[in-house]
Write a protein that binds this DNA or RNA. Structure first.
Lengths: 235, 235
DNA sequence: CAGTGGTCTAGACCACCAA
DNA sequence: TGGTGGTCTAGACCACTGG
């Protein structure tokens, strides 16, 4: 049996996206929904909580749950999402190139970033992403070998996250991200079609598994004119 | 009576921050906590849910709740937070300058951005932020006059959000944000100490009230070397 | 006033984990 | 196996909203 609250959440999401509920409409009350779906009010409340967190509705005491305008979900880089997942959702034309893949001892910087001892090894993976014919993104991944024993070019060309979650059965739980701007390096210029630009947008991510182990550090470097990060935030 | 789950949440946060619970420690079980605090297990679960959402703990079925390393206290730009609030938390040395403040009819662009009719008026507010002696941030705010009737220089020099929430009693609920990089404009160069840099980091925010009305559009323009955005994200 | 969402409770059953 | 968190229920009382 699938989780009820998740099924209801997805059901209402699809109704909002299909326009059954329009922006500024009021959803049925929690009581009504719990009757409709034949579940307890608390279960409905979990579903509505998910909707609220994800920017689909705004709840208001004494009034009800208003549907928000979700057309502004342009480019969901927010959250822990892989490049492949984003582009699939956007229906965009993209290619991935594996530029480098090797397993090496962690250098000092990586030992610090990934909390490793000097004997431990990491996979170093460099990929570039071509969108509409231009190389725009340079991804440098460092994956702790302790958690991911083997990597191949084929896997990296497809989706690292899919392999880690589906094949290895590891659970990716959360990430700390940091967005900055930096002067472009020779490496950036070597791998990317930077045109006139001399800076790049840098997204550093530390990704953690279910059991709180830090298993990956990623530096994603973007040509500035093609970079966008969107976020939905609650106060 | 304050909300119990919030009291417990804050209590555990302070214990984590004071080191009573160390990173990688296991919190007491939900059962134990509900006995300790004399509340139901569901109430404790709400508190732990908040802790998890805010990156303080990682829950794990069958094991318990692990305390995470919250060194991510770097620069919490994430969420809907005002400039003043950030800098107060960071204990930093900053100044705000009100460069321009006037109430004007919404031009075409603003009518579109803020869903306004041509008769409606908006406050245009331009502020610069000086940190450690350098003008680094240019904030351009557009506030719908329908919701905020009067603004003064004094208010804008202090905190717009504090005035709106505490004095006017409006409730700021959520925001859509978008981060991009742009070529610096003449306006940027006029207001900021840009040095050699010819680009800026741009954060566009659409901020909404409790009743889902869009009341503010902000464009925050940062000198690239001083810009950082950090985010904690769950998968 | 009746209807709404917000909080809290007590109890149940399950899946997962470690010993 | 006993303890953990995850899900779900049924019911209670509250504060807020609108007519």
């Amino acid at each position: 049996m699938q989780r009820k609250y998740n099924r209801i959440f997805l059901d209402i999401v699809s109704q909002i996206e299909q326009g059954v509920y329009q922006p500024n409409d009021l959803l049925p009350s929690e009581k009504t929904l719990s009757d409709q779906y034949q579940v307890s009010r608390d279960t409905v409340r979990k579903s509505l909580g998910l909707l609220e967190q994800n920017g689909y509705i705004q709840k208001s005491k004494g009034k009800g749950s208003f549907v928000l305008d979700t057309n502004k979900l342009d480019f969901p880089v927010s959250g822990v999402v892989s490049f492949k997942e984003i582009n699939q959702r956007m229906g965009r034309n993209f290619e991935t190139f594996v530029e480098e893949l090797k397993c090496q001892p962690a250098n000092e910087q990586l030992q610090k970033n990934l909390n490793l001892s000097s004997e431990e090894r990491v996979w170093k993976l460099i990929r570039t992403r071509k969108i509409d014919g231009e190389k725009i993104i340079l991804d440098k991944d460092y994956v702790v070998q302790k958690y991911v024993e083997t990597l191949t070019e084929v896997i990296c060309q497809d989706s690292l996250y899919q392999y880690i979650e589906n094949t290895l059965g590891l659970k990716i739980a959360y990430a700390n991200k940091e967005i900055t701007m930096q002067m472009a390096t020779d490496e950036d210029r070597h791998y990317l079609d930077l045109k006139k630009y001399d800076m790049v947008a840098v997204v550093r991510s530390y990704t953690y598994l279910d059991d709180t182990s830090l298993f990956q550090y990623t530096e994603s470097r973007h040509r500035p004119d093609k970079f966008i990060f969107v976020d939905f935030a609650r106060r």
